[in-house]
């Protein structure tokens, strides 16, 4: 039963992943990506990694992909320029792809290849996956976790450095200065000799 569910999810995942790169409309492509995320979340659930599955749906589908869709819809993407040069790069691209595929095939088909020889540390049976994750995240993986915090700080600093313009382009009123203004700042009285009509 589990393997049947796995194969269904896997088929949909592969189909969706292929459509992401083959479909012409970028909006459709990102929707297929959402489908791919959903099905891989399903596969993670089969592996009893429910926390990761939920995070994948919440963060990637809920936040990242929605933003992505916004960006795609806001940018006026010209489909013609996107596909330009396809013929030029197709030959070299497919050549590289075929070579890599052949190499992978040779590695996996070679004698003595059995992928199921090693298994990772077994998960604790008695605690839910989320609890187990939380326990190692703040103990065994404390250092990489703290580094991730630094990484987010860098991302924040970099984003502000690259986008914030200190000079203001929008015009606005400053009430405190408006109140302090004196008549002499605005109005200049010039003394002129009166002119007589001829």
């Amino acid at each position: 039963m589990t393997s049947l569910v796995f194969y269904i999810f896997a088929t949909i995942l592969i189909f969706a992943a292929i459509r992401v790169v083959t479909v012409k409309n970028p909006v459709h492509a990102s929707l297929f990506l959402v489908l791919a995320f959903f099905t891989s979340a399903g596969i993670w659930l089969l592996l009893e990694a429910e926390f990761l599955a939920i995070t994948l749906v919440l963060v990637y589908v809920g936040a990242v992909m929605v933003l992505f869709l916004f960006v795609i819809m806001m940018l006026d993407i010209d489909h013609k320029t996107l596909r330009e040069g396809f013929g030029r790069y197709f030959a070299i691209g497919s050549f590289v792809a075929v070579v890599v595929l052949l190499e992978l095939y040779m590695v996996f088909k070679a004698k003595g290849s059995d992928l199921a020889t090693t298994t990772a540390k077994a998960m604790a049976e008695d605690v839910p996956n989320t609890v187990a994750l939380g326990k190692v995240l703040y103990t065994d993986y404390l250092y990489p976790f703290e580094l991730a915090a630094m990484l987010l700080l860098v991302a924040m600093v970099a984003a502000i450095t690259l986008t914030m313009r200190p000079r203001r382009s929008n015009k606005y009123q400053e009430p405190s200065k408006q109140v302090e203004v004196k008549a002499s700042d605005r109005l200049k009285v010039l003394k002129m000799p009166a002119e007589k009509a001829e």
Binding site: P144, L147, A148, M150, V154, T161, L162
Partner: peptide, 21 residues
Amino acid sequence: HFLSLYMGLELMALSIYALVA
């Protein structure tokens, strides 16, 4: 550890990408 290595690499690389720009 592979994780700390990767985090260090990204910390370095992300900062440098921003510096180039």
